[in-house]
Write a protein that binds this DNA or RNA. Sequence first.
DNA 1: ATGAAAGCGCTAACAT
DNA 2: ATGTTAGCGCTTTCAT
Lengths: 353, 353
Amino acid sequence: MSPRSTRSTSTGKPDIRTVASLARVSIATVSRTINGSSAVSDKLSKRVWQAIEQLNYFPNTHARSLVSGRSRILGIIVENITNPFFPELIASFEEIAVAHGYELLVSSGNIQSAAQIETIVRRMLERKVEGVAVLTFGSEESVLDQLVNHGIPLVLAEFEVNNPRVSTILIDYASGIREAVEHLVNLGHRKIAYLAGPHTLHSAETRLHCFESSTAVCGLRIRKEWIVDADHTLKGGEAGMQRLLGLKERPTAVICSNDMTAIGVLHAAHQARLAVPEELSVIGLDDIAFTEFTLPPLTTIGLSRHALARAAFDALRVQVEALNEPGEHMPNQRRFEVTTTLIARESTAPPKA
Amino acid sequence: MSPRSTRSTSTGKPDIRTVASLARVSIATVSRTINGSSAVSDKLSKRVWQAIEQLNYFPNTHARSLVSGRSRILGIIVENITNPFFPELIASFEEIAVAHGYELLVSSGNIQSAAQIETIVRRMLERKVEGVAVLTFGSEESVLDQLVNHGIPLVLAEFEVNNPRVSTILIDYASGIREAVEHLVNLGHRKIAYLAGPHTLHSAETRLHCFESSTAVCGLRIRKEWIVDADHTLKGGEAGMQRLLGLKERPTAVICSNDMTAIGVLHAAHQARLAVPEELSVIGLDDIAFTEFTLPPLTTIGLSRHALARAAFDALRVQVEALNEPGEHMPNQRRFEVTTTLIARESTAPPKA
DNA sequence: ATGAAAGCGCTAACAT
DNA sequence: ATGTTAGCGCTTTCAT
């Protein structure tokens, strides 16, 4: 009558015990069968699977996590879900993780205050994530510390930390950005501006450096007013372009730290009745889906979210599995590369004579 | 020496037992204190909290879920994370849920095959979500069945099901769409086209019906070629507009089932050298962030993701809590309303004489 | 108001 | 190869 006594009854959800008794084996055998561990004889294994099917049984992940110490949950922290780059990145990561039997704990809210970071870390810790991909491209050192102190493997983008549990994914921005600069130079541009991202983002700083060295290699003289701060948002791009518009010596082309910025630039140029690409060439970075549909379609530097997600997952997996196979050493922090490449569309053209 | 014996040692993460012994109380008292249940004397409570702080303790959610039967996880299924409407919706939902102590299990992948739905449902079931917000705006009846059979509360958008565990959020598309039609009529338009969404989406069907009744009320005669199928994607909008362009009797304005479609339309119009809004007025629906930055900025029908997220969360919470307070009856399926309203920007103007 | 103890559903020794 | 059993860390009766 009491709930406790219904254990072997047909009421409620099937138990590992329900399966065991239906298959006429011990619960250990059921567990082994499910986890594919130690050889279970074909005969019993078959009986077990059959019982599982028949009962529509699936294990209780909480019980499993509790006893095994493995949650099979991975955390992912992104910067700003408002930038379409990130949702696509999450979707890719999710697909890969789920295919490998991991669940995802996503933190998509805009991270601004330290308190918010605190909350996120807490959520991750409470749910016992086995690893976290920090794809904010920023310098959330405080996140790292807390998580690392708890021994949780991390993978970061563009930021190297001297800790065996932290892997870094290096993105080869240099090639894409060099291609972009060369593309512009070949078109005849000499006066190229750059709308930078937040200085707090490692990736934004890297992008900026790549721009500077690429233009240097091409022998371009970039006036410092042509390098203006933006913040990777639409409005930031618009404001940045407006600053450029106010300059005495105007650039004929502008490369943006990301696509959101570039879309803002397109908007500002249009308001100023400056024709793109005839009077101004614009290049973005990320290749978000919208870039094909801007007016004109945006020339941009492609960065594969799928490659990035893959690299992040693989890096995490290596660490997580090493942690669970005590025999193996922790692999040294690994670096994965993902590359970038120019995608020429219609926002670039020779400068007006 | 063995891991088991380290329990009361300072090694490793603090236990409820560690807290109990530090505070010189029983583990039951620690549990009660944390859960704010049954009165614990101020004196002990203080000691417990102090120990918790000192040890930086937090409870193991898996153990908690296992024994209490409550996971404090809510599922959310969205249609297509590529449409910026959804990430913003997720972010809002996450913020609200986390503020109420729930974790989120997001399914962001594009749902296409039945197998994918199967996987999602399985993930939700395995992690023992307490409720699921199905914001696909679609007709995933199969999802519903499985989840409902397991007694999990659901909240759907735009689709009513006769089941006490399923709530519906009704969105008042009628007012926004009526405003849009009237706006166009006031501008002098009589020939208004409509780019519809997938017929499998309840919300898309509702939007279409609202368009039809609004134009009827205004005494407009809408040729059936002006109502063309699209699919809520950028490319779909582009293709739909191209069809409209091929018509002998062309419309002077087009209302789109969502903003993605409208952005596609803008693109197609530009390619056809049709000036917006001078030669064609365009209206979208959703008010995603990009609409302020399209060329020209898009007039659209605003639908608050925050209101929607709020309604979805509240509906779920009512159900979930009723389930955990055996005294109460299950409330009847509740209906929450969220409204829509026209946001006039620059993609609409009087038709050319 | 507080504590002792049972047991949530499972995995992993340890036996056999 | 299979079964028995001791917990994983917590909540929740049930005593006191």
